[in-house]
Structures are given as C-alpha cells and as structure tokens.
Nucleic acid binder design. Structure first.
Lengths: 225, 225
DNA sequence: TGATTTTTGCCAAATATGTGACATAGTAGA
DNA sequence: TCTACTATGTCACATATTTGGCAAAAATCA
C-alpha cells in the first residue's frame, strides 16, 4: 500500500472516538472524528476517507441514514462503511447491511479485533476493476476482440452464443433465469419460443465442452467455475 | 417513497395510542389504533398496515398471540411487527422473536427513538432485497448462486427445496406453520395435499443432515441454530 | 393406551430440458 | 443473380428431474 489509509470515526461519545483514534493511529492510519451525523457527512465529503466507522445510535442523523446518504450520493464509491453496534441489536444489523454498509463491529470494541477488521476491509477496497479480458477456468474471453480461447485454441462463437457466454460469465456462479436471459439478450420486446435458449446453450456447450454451463431445472443456467 | 406508510397501533391504554398517533402523524404516517388483540387482528386484515406497533400485555388476545396469528396466516407478508415492551422483560423478547416479530421498542417511548426505529423498519420493508449470502451454523446459503454449502461441500437442492430452506432461514428459530409455508411458497391459490410439505422437508433433511430442521408437532417447522 | 401427527419408502404425474431434423433469413463470393 | 454457407429459430419427441401422493410405520401427545 502506497499511502496512509484515511479513517473517519463518527460517534457521539467522545471517549470512543479517542480510544479508536489512539489505536488506529498506532497502526499508521490517518484518523479524524466527528460527533454527529451531520458533521460526519460533511467531513466525509471533505476528508474522503477510505473507511468510515459509524455508530448507529446518534442524535440528529442516525448512522444508517448517514450511510444511506453517502452510498446514494455515489460520490464516495471507494469508501467502505462499517457500523459500530451494541451486541444484541440483531435488527439493526440487518437494516445496517441493507443501507449499504460493508461490515459491522460489535461494541465493546476490542482493539485487536478492530484493527484486523479494518485491515480486512481496506484490502477489499484495493481491488475493484472490471476488465475487457476475463480469464476463468481455462477460458479467456476477450470482450473487445469478440473472441474466446480455450487454452490457446481459439473458439469461434456466433453473436448470440457470445452474448450468452458473456452474460453468464459476467457473474460466474450466479444463476440466470430464462426470463433474465431473454431480457438481457433478446430485449423485452422480442418474442421467441422457449426452446430457443436451450438450443443456444447446447451450441455453446458443443463448442466449449460440457463442464462450463450448468442447468438448474426450473431455475436457470449458470457458469460453473 | 411514493405513498404514505400505514401504521396500526394496538395497545390497551388509550393515552399511549394517542401519544404515538400524534407523533407519527406529524411525520406523515397514516395511523389507526385498536385497543385489544381481537380488534387489532380485525383491523390488521382490513387496513393492511405496513407496520404494526403491538403492546405485549393486553386483555383478551395478547400481543404475542396476535403476532403469531398474523404471521401464521401468511396473509400479510409485507407487514412488519414491532413490539412495545417494558424494559427488563427479556423473557418476552425471546418468545416475541419466535412468534415472528421484527423489532422491539422499549417503553417508556421516546418520540425520537420511536420515529427513527419506525423509519428503519419501513426501510426494511421497502428494500425487500435481503443479503444474497447467509451463513448459519456450518451452512452457507447463496441466493444468487442458488446453492448451499455445508462447510465447503456443495449441496445441490431442487427449487422447492431451496425455497423451503430459504424461507426457514429467513428467520432462524422462528416456527413456520404449515399454512404460512403454503402461502409463502406455493401461493394462496395452489392446492396441494398437506403431506407435501413433509415430503419436501424430508428431502431437505436427507441432503442437509438431521440437525437443522426441527419439527414441532401440531405447530410447524423451524430452522434450529 | 388410543388418537393424532409426522416420517418414510415407493411410485406416478407433471414439468423442464436436451436433441435431431428442419425452415428461414441473411450474407459473401463468384 | 445465384449459390453455398452460416446463424438463428422452431418443432416434435426423448429424457431427466422434480414434485406430489399414498399408505404403512414410527413418533408423540394426552
């Protein structure tokens, strides 16, 4: 890592901020604090931290609301948010994750745990790229050149076949329902029979081999890796 | 949010209803009140609220019973239920959770807290999307990949089996009545024999192992964690 | 114990998908 | 223009898998 990661702590208890700050600075992070949601929001946009540690229960704007505003604004796409919560607040956990938070850390906070969680979260930030060339299993898909290699053997795919493969590997492992496939490849208006997808899948399988595309009956298809 | 969320308050103290109503209406919610469980049930089905605030201690039908009846009927799948409880009633917390409640709000009620909890709960309703990946015991359920892992052993489930498991773990520990399961998985119209669920449960148990799904005779099934 | 409910093994019906043969349309090259 | 070729889509039928159901056995409750 080339620069000191920046962390913003938002909590209405000054003591907590101080303790966290002390521990994190010891690990060479750059730390700032804010004592309520409004101040936190402002500082988030000015300071552009890599990570925000956010207490849920706060006056004025609560942590969840603040998180939502940050995530919705889209202005800090690379900032991770972790909630600080009291134990036994299972419900808030769920809401917190739904608001777009990336993790939560239970109070009372144990410094060791805190540090390792923080580091783990920052590692996640580091890699976030989408590429024109995807390698998966022994396949290489080049979205720009419109070509697919198995090992270094080129496989020529027809357009629909390529689109289909491309869709499936856009989220390897994810199951795509037939409906989703129709909508994404044929568009919502085109009307084709329901055997059509099977046929294309079959042709793909003929060219690629049997061990890439898996059928889940009644559910859809997925690329297996 | 496009429409005014509807809230039903059920409490045997008129004062409480009035105070809550006043505060919630100020926030632009549509509020109704009922003074006992029976009336509450009736109004719940007629009014179809987004959220029910439910006192636990009530004459005739208590709050927990009322909650159970609503959740078991499966007819108001999108209605959240929050209990109003006096502090230090931990034991009721557990029962209340198992009855399917979604949150608790402690009395005495502080309007600020009330409002923010209510908003949080409604946010949950709106964004129906739950986490794609759930970990529980040694199981990992990935809703996107439509797959289940026990440790790192993949277990392949058929659609209905997956749906069933998914329902059960959506509230671990909660007892799902057969009726609720029917309504949620088959929908209110489909007609299948009442041994059908058992059969699917069996197949799930065959695949997962015996220690996950517990039968409560005459009541229903639950996922034990 | 008897009554009720659930589990289980076995099987049948319903459904979804795979496959081969074929129709159509578009395209490139002669 | 014609021909040969390919991509796409369709159909009918074969197959595989899932789902639902019954009845006997087992478990549980009262």
């Amino acid at each position: 890592m080339n620069k000191r990661p920046k962390i913003l702590i938002v909590d209405d208890e000054e003591d907590i901020i101080e303790i966290l700050k002390y521990n994190l600075e010891k690990e060479n992070f750059e730390v700032r604090g804010a004592m309520d949601g409004a101040a936190g929001l402002e500082m988030a946009h000015a300071f552009k931290p890599d990570l925000i540690l956010l207490d849920i229960m706060m006056p004025k704007i609560d942590g969840i609301e603040m998180c939502k505003q940050i995530k919705d604004s889209g202005k800090l796409p690379d900032t991770m948010i972790a909630f600080l919560t009291a134990r036994n607040e299972d419900f808030t956990h769920i809401t917190a994750l739904e608001s777009g938070g990336d993790d939560f850390i239970n109070k009372p906070i144990r410094p060791r745990v805190l540090i390792s969680r923080v580091k783990a979260l920052l590692r996640r930030t580091a890699k976030k790229e989408v590429d024109a060339i995807v390698n998966i299993k022994d396949l290489t898909i080049d979205r720009e050149k419109f070509s697919v290699y198995k090992g270094n053997q080129e496989i020529v795919l027809a357009k629909k076949q390529f689109e289909l493969l491309n869709l499936l590997i856009s989220k390897p492992g994810k199951v795509f329902s037939r409906e989703e496939i129709f909508n994404k490849i044929w568009g919502p208006d085109v009307l084709v029979g329901d055997r059509t997808i099977d046929v294309h899948i079959r042709k793909l399988r003929e060219k690629l081999g049997e061990n890439y595309i898996k059928t889940l009956k009644g559910i859809g298809y997925k690329f297996e890796f």
